[in-house]
């Protein structure tokens, strides 16, 4: 699998983190996204007319949608360890995967405005992201009351992997973790997963 990657994009990190936690290797093609905007160059627009990263290629297959990429990589894992077998739990996982990849794109955008010169109003985006992390924190509070520390159940799933980068990186746009104690505890659990890796902005406590 080839990942067209930019190290500082959290959406690319989501894919790298998943591959690492499922013991799969990715061939990384590093794209000069900032400041080069190479993903908007002619050859890249051929791969993804939307002009965005990440892009995943596997043989004839070329994927540009974040959740499609994440589901594909999670299914390539022989053990399929992050895809719940129980159908209700799998549906809950998909529900939170949608939250991570669609709703939380405001957090990705806020970070891009704060760090990478993207256009937008960081204060408005930050306020939206804060509301979403409240929803996550409320949910994780309920989960732990039921003895389930992950978003979809007792075991970590693809949704947790997809959610983690947004929460871990929100300090990059000046949203602190102070107000989200349940998410803080949950994030600590994610950090202990075998194969866990970091990226710039996510401290490695060595």
């Amino acid at each position: 699998m080839i990942l067209h990657n930019y190290d500082l994009y959290e959406d690319c990190f989501r894919v790298r983190l998943l591959a690492s936690c499922t013991e799969q290797s990715l061939e990384l093609v590093n794209v000069n996204a900032f400041p080069g905007a190479e993903e908007k160059s002619a050859p890249y627009l051929k791969l993804n007319p939307l002009g965005r990263l990440p892009i995943l290629e596997d043989g004839e297959l070329c994927l540009r949608n974040l959740s499609a990429i994440l589901i594909y990589v999670a299914e390539q894992d022989a053990q399929k360890r992050f895809i719940p077998k129980d159908s209700a739990e799998r549906a809950r996982m998909m529900d939170w995967l949608g939250f991570a990849c669609q709703d939380l794109s405001v957090a990705t955008e806020a970070r891009a405005v704060a760090l990478l010169d993207a256009p937008g109003d960081v204060a408005v985006l930050r306020a939206k992201a804060r509301q979403l992390f409240r929803i996550l924190d409320d949910h994780l509070t309920r989960q732990s009351l039921r003895g389930e520390i992950y978003v979809a159940g007792k075991s970590p799933s693809l949704a947790d992997i997809a959610l983690f980068p947004a929460f871990a990186l929100c300090r990059d746009f000046n949203l602190d973790h102070d107000e989200f104690p349940a998410a803080r505890l949950w994030a600590r659990q994610i950090r202990t997963l075998p194969g866990f890796i970091t990226m710039p902005g996510i401290p490695d406590y060595h």
Partner: peptide
């Protein structure tokens, strides 16, 4: 903070 939200070996910010 709530005691059970600050596990041994961890830190958190508040105001």
């Amino acid at each position: 903070a709530l005691s059970n939200m600050i596990e041994a070996g961890t830190s958190a910010g508040t105001v």
